[in-house]
């Protein structure tokens, strides 16, 4: 494992949610290296799924936590582009959203999302959810090198 590499890419426009997510991950020492971007354009600029030559210097993240409702380019489009690229399609992507819409859920899985988590309003439930998915995707899940 390359310690220098970014472990989690958090795509989230709400600073409050960013803070709460980071709190939850750090509290359990799950992500020391988290890259945060606040919209879809920034997310694609960072990973560059269509341009592997210019991939992030320190490698692709081990997990992407993706909000759906983002300024400029939305979460579903980011998901589609990442999963459409040979270089980035194996990166686990967890949709972490406030949307309970059936259509968002269906569309996310159709585009290849690995999980779909509705952010609970309750802080304790939220913390629990983030911790569990971090544990699973970062420590338990194996992906091809």
């Amino acid at each position: 494992m390359n310690v220098e590499s970014v472990e989690v890419l958090l795509v989230e426009d709400s600073p409050d949610d960013v803070e709460l997510t980071l709190r939850a991950l750090r509290e359990h020492n799950l992500a020391n290296r988290v890259k945060v971007v606040s919209d879809g354009v920034e997310a694609l600029d960072y990973i560059r799924p269509d341009d592997p030559a210019n991939a992030p210097r320190d490698g692709y993240p081990k997990l992407v936590l993706l909000d759906l409702k983002l300024p400029r380019i939305g979460g579903l489009e980011v998901l589609r582009r990442l999963k459409a690229s040979e270089a980035t399609k194996t990166i686990p992507i967890v949709v972490l959203t406030s949307s309970q819409e059936e259509s968002d859920l269906v569309e996310s899985y159709r585009l290849g999302a690995n999980s779909y988590i509705v952010k609970p309003v309750d802080f304790q439930q939220f913390t629990q959810a983030v911790v569990r998915l971090g544990l699973y995707w970062l420590l338990l899940n194996k992906v091809p090198e």
């Binding site: 709460l20 759906l68 406030s98 309003v121 304790q124």
Partner: peptide, 20 residues
């Protein structure tokens, strides 16, 4: 959709930061 997304986010913040 916006109720679902936009109202729940601030609520979560109120709840979360109050608890913190």
């Amino acid at each position: 959709y916006s109720v679902s997304h936009d109202l729940r986010a601030p609520l979560r913040s109120i709840d979360a930061f109050s608890q913190i």
